[in-house]
């Protein structure tokens, strides 16, 4: 037995925490992990709505989000590694020459 409001509230709190993390922190890896936290919050909201409406498509969408998260991490980690190798720093405020 679970309360939809509680689950949705947890999902909103997780999303806000992830957003604050992305905005506030300077470390690129920590920002990536906060993005994962936001994706987790969205997945929790999707599962909640899917359970509430009793349809399967929410769970299918969750599967697609998992795949997208895996692809995102697989691309983002090499980018972060290259950036940290070029700038010898993980500080996003040092990445001021991203064009070209």
């Amino acid at each position: 037995m679970a309360d939809t409001q509680l689950l949705l509230g947890l999902s909103f709190v997780l999303f806000a925490l992830g957003l604050v993390g992305v905005m506030v922190r300077r470390n690129a890896l920590v920002m990536l992990m906060c993005m994962e936290l936001m994706l987790n919050a969205v997945i929790l909201a999707l599962v909640t709505f899917s359970l509430e409406t009793g349809t399967l498509s929410g769970a299918v969408l969750v599967f697609l989000i998992f795949v997208v998260a895996a692809a995102e991490i697989a691309i983002a980690i090499p980018i972060v590694l290259q950036l940290s190798r070029q700038r010898s720093s993980l500080d996003v405020e040092g990445y001021d020459r991203l064009q070209g």
């Binding site: 300077r26 470390n27 720093s89």
Partner: peptide
Amino acid sequence: RDPSFVRRYSRLLLPGIVLGALLAGALG
């Protein structure tokens, strides 16, 4: 020993926290 591990927060610390609290409040 990267500098971003020592100076953790960017200049957006205060507006970020305020905006996050606002968002959490509205969604709640």
